[in-house]
Design a protein around this nucleic acid. Structure first.
Length: 582
RNA sequence: GCGACCGUGGUCUAGUUUGGUCUAGGACAAAGGCCUUCCAAGCCUUUAACCCGGGUUCAAAUCUCGGCGGUCGCACCA
């Protein structure tokens, strides 16, 4: 029975220090993995590649926020409500069901807002049974996918949660960063960091983890201007889309379409979303995942997150699991900032000046104090005037127009009619406007991407394992190998080793076992270049360079190594341009 | 979380049916040495395992129960 790539990669990961189950000596817990020496660097290189493409090249910024946040944050973000499912179980067939869904199915509205015991009462009252086998349902229990933590000592503790996404950090710090970045929009704020979700039954190794690294990129934009000038450089790039419509028709037909066309046809809602989808595709391409093994699947309305208006999941074809999500591209609108604004009471709107101040006709409310005093008394009149000034004038005008009265909510309900209020049209000058920025969010699962990279880099050649990683991802760039361990070759090799270390290259020196065996070891962890020091080196200072891909060798003078290798690792030279072929 | 199958050195595995001969065998890898050779060569030496915990038994890798982990199916995965 032949193993599939997944097993081979897990095996390689364990053997060569890439990735392996965490706390193995205590038996491990599913959903937790550690990165070894090679995996750590590989992951860092992937992250660095992302930074370059999305942050540095786009003039965006990166932050680091906390992993633990107090419960108010997740109350505001909606995670406390939406990330908690109240579950019930069928006592007969042990089917696990969401209690609120069962009630929604029989026509009870807003079931997701009810408490556990209320849900159970409704289940009992309506005699809801297991839809599969008609069995009796057990008592409901809440299950929250967030890890809860206690902040501080037991007595005075405050509830907190480990973040299930990094994004909230950006929303919470938005105001400060917006100011320190001198009030520019669009403003992308990135974060690469650990998150935790208490998954019910994680499987699939590094694909579904309880603790994982996420890249959340929140791009804050003016909702009236969702354009992105750089779109013109990529508008003819093609995207592979699986739109919602196709999925609803039980089809998985992929539409190959240029971003320009997708935007024009409204398939992708805005330029920012489209631009960064192109970038995401390029990103994976640079990581060695071919275009035809990628696609963007539009999330169906019922599978979209509670905050999202449109979502495309970027998926990669994996041999064992088929299309697997590695990134999500969501239009989060102003959902998060709006909620944090309401919950915290802090104004998170931004102010944008108009190009030219505008003259606007504005309805100004003037309470007719004498009439109000007559109807409600002098003391109340002051309070009413005060409340009026704090109310939304647009609403008051509308209601007065439509209904003929406006109900002012104070300690008592006060009915105000047209005779109480003068509406004066005044010409005013507005120099700008305030609004809550909208957010476009590309979000990446680093661990999944790393796994996909391994899967596409994995090769077998002559019964040997080769990790053919893209050049810039290589955790170890150079292997230094003296051909034999005598006659001064190791000494010479160590000299060159030291020289390349000083060039800030990642280099390993290896003198044990035969040369072939050492090449094989280097291949397994994807070392692009092996440098061999032989007897000729002692005579003329030349060394051989061996390419992981072709196994071809070229001979060059060791003096030229720093210069040529630097160019090579920047993709400015091909291997065969490094020196004379052997 | 439920069900089925599974868990032996770093990796892959023999042994489990029928408890004892297992002081657990092999291959590969790794470490040291010899050899000095451009694709896992050879020789010598060494390190190294029955997932964890109860139970049955004179005796458990083997039977049994529980836990943990893995794979698959169901459910879950905004």
């Amino acid at each position: 029975m032949s193993r599939d790539v997944y097993e081979k990669i897990i095996n390689l990961g364990k053997r060569r220090g890439i990735i392996f189950p965490a706390f193995e000596i205590y038996g491990g817990v599913s959903g937790f993995f550690d990165y070894g020496p090679i995996g750590t660097v590989l992951k860092r290189n992937i992250e660095e590649k992302w930074r370059k493409l999305f942050v540095y090249n786009e003039g965006m910024v990166e932050i680091e926020s906390t992993l633990i946040m107090p419960s108010q944050v997740y109350n505001a973000s909606g995670h406390l409500a939406h990330f908690t499912d109240i579950m019930t179980k069928c006592s007969k067939c042990t089917n696990i069901l969401r209690t609120d869904k069962l009630l929604t199915d029989i026509g009870i509205e807003n079931a997701e807002r009810l408490k556990t015991d209320e849900l159970d009462r409704l289940i009992e009252k309506n005699d809801v049974r297991c839809p599969k086998c008609n069995g009796q349902l057990t008592k409901s229990e809440p299950f929250n996918l967030m890890f809860q933590v206690e902040i501080g000592t037991h007595s005075g503790s405050m509830n907190g949660f480990c973040r299930p996404e990094a994004a909230q950090g950006q929303f919470l710090a938005f105001k400060r960063i917006y100011l320190s970045e001198r009030e520019r929009l669009p403003l992308g704020i990135a974060q690469i960091g650990r998150c935790a979700r208490n998954e019910i039954a994680p499987r699939k190794g590094p694909i579904r983890l309880r603790e994982f690294t996420i890249i959340d990129f929140e791009i804050f934009v003016d909702p009236d201007n969702l354009s992105y000038p750089k779109i013109k450089y990529v508008e003819h790039e093609k995207l592979r889309l699986l739109v919602a419509q196709e999925q609803l028709a039980q089809s998985s037909k992929i539409m190959e379409i240029t971003v320009k066309e997708a935007l024009e046809k409204g398939i992708i809602k805005n330029q920012i979303l489209g631009y960064f989808m192109v970038l995401a595709s390029k990103f994976l391409n640079d990581l060695g995942i071919p275009e035809n093994k990628q696609r963007f699947r539009e999330a169906l309305p019922d599978e979209r997150a509670h905050y999202s208006q449109q979502t495309f999941d970027q998926e990669v074809w994996l041999q064992r699991w088929g299309w697997t999500e590695v990134s999500g591209h969501a239009y989060r609108t102003d959902y998060d900032l709006r909620n944090h604004m309401t919950c915290s009471g802090v104004d998170l709107r931004v102010y944008k000046a108009f190009d030219k101040p505008k003259k606007v006709a504005k309805n100004v409310l003037k309470p007719k104090m004498d009439v109000i005093e007559k109807d409600y008394g002098a003391l109340n009149a002051q309070i009413i005037a005060n409340l009026l000034s704090k109310s939304d004038h647009k609403v008051i005008c509308r209601e007065l127009n439509e209904k003929g009265f406006y109900e002012l909510m104070g300690q008592h309900l006060i009915k105000l009619e047209s005779k109480h209020i003068d509406i004066i049209v005044e010409e005013m000058v507005e120099s700008g406007r305030k609004f809550i920025p909208h957010v476009v969010e590309p979000s990446f699962g680093v661990d999944r991407i790393l796994y996909a990279v391994l899967e596409y880099a994995y090769l077998e050649k002559k019964k040997r394992v080769i990790l053919e990683l893209p050049l810039q991802l290589a955790p170890v760039q150079i292997y230094i190998l003296p051909l034999v361990t005598k006659n001064g070759l190791p000494e010479k090799a160590r000299e060159i080793f030291k020289m390349l270390l000083d060039e800030s290259l990642t280099v390993i020196y290896d003198e044990s076992d035969s040369i072939g065996r050492r090449y094989a070891r280097a291949d397994e962890i994807g070392v692009p270049i092996c440098i061999t020091i032989d007897y000729l080196t002692l005579e003329d200072d030349t060394v051989t360079l061996r390419d992981i891909k072709s196994w071809q060798q070229v001979r060059i003078n060791s003096r030229d190594l720093p210069n040529l290798l630097r160019k090579y690792f920047k993709n400015k030279l091909r291997f065969d341009q490094l020196g004379k072929p052997l």
